[in-house]
């Protein structure tokens, strides 16, 4: 199993993802500089968190024009698993690989804290080791996580089970109080129609080992390993 981790100028969670893939799961992991178009034989591609291009114009807006994104789009089109975490999710939205857009958090502030989410879709290559309806806690750290899309797009996402994670309270209810950023319908993560491209605002890479007090996130990476083994 080989993970390819894209590095944009301003990415800052690339090493976290590399650590999870290589040191914790014993997989191969390569950094892929955004100017490269060769994915180095990656079985799964991760767009990590950070501030690609300083978030100039809009978060993810400039990163989508990096040469590597054409290769990522082609890889995704062939069914290759692609995971966008936080800023990586924003890049996937701007690139049109996932529908919708991010707005500034409704509280107008950067929010950095743990959130509880309900797993809504356990059939993607990044969530197969979770079970649908279970609750997971992961940290968020973002200014633009207020997910939005036209109502018909939101309805389509719901109908096709493409909401992957939803912010909820500790009883699993998607309440407004449990929504950290104002995201439409408490959406924390979604996938494309085929399910192989997944984006989420919370950081599984920052909670992937017991040493950090929470290892809930490691299953996202381990799911990809399991998905690859099952091929």
């Amino acid at each position: 199993m080989r993970f390819g981790i894209v590095v944009f100028p301003g990415s800052n969670c690339d090493e976290d993802c590399h650590h999870v893939a290589k040191d914790l799961l014993g997989c191969e992991a390569d950094y892929i500089w955004h100017h490269d178009t060769d994915l180095k034989g990656a079985d799964a591609v991760i767009l990590p968190g950070g501030f690609a291009y300083g978030d100039y114009l809009r978060a993810g807006a400039l990163a989508r024009f990096s040469p590597v994104m054409e290769s990522v789009a082609a890889f995704a089109k062939k069914g290759g698993p692609v995971l966008g975490i936080c800023n990586g999710f924003q890049v996937l939205l701007e690139a049109g690989l996932l529908p919708g857009a991010m707005q500034i958090n409704r509280g107008l502030r950067y929010v950095c804290r743990d959130v509880t989410m309900r797993v809504e879709n356990d059939a993607t290559p990044f969530t197969s080791l979770y079970s649908k309806g279970s609750l997971v806690t992961m940290p968020i750290g973002h200014m633009e996580g207020n997910y939005t899309a036209p109502p018909e797009t939101l309805d389509l996402l719901e109908r096709d089970g493409r909401v992957v994670f939803r912010y909820c309270d500790r009883e699993g209810r998607p309440t407004d109080a449990a929504n950290p950023n104002g995201a439409a319908r408490n959406i924390a993560g979604i996938c494309n129609r085929e399910g192989n491209v997944v984006g989420l605002m919370p950081h599984p890479d920052r909670c992937a080992e017991a040493l950090l007090g929470n290892d809930a996130g490691v299953k996202m990476f381990a799911s990809a390993v399991a998905a690859m083994a099952a091929r």
Partner: peptide, 9 residues
């Protein structure tokens, strides 16, 4: 019709 938290603030 799109929420504009910045404008609101």
């Amino acid at each position: 019709g799109v929420l504009d938290p910045q404008g609101k603030a």
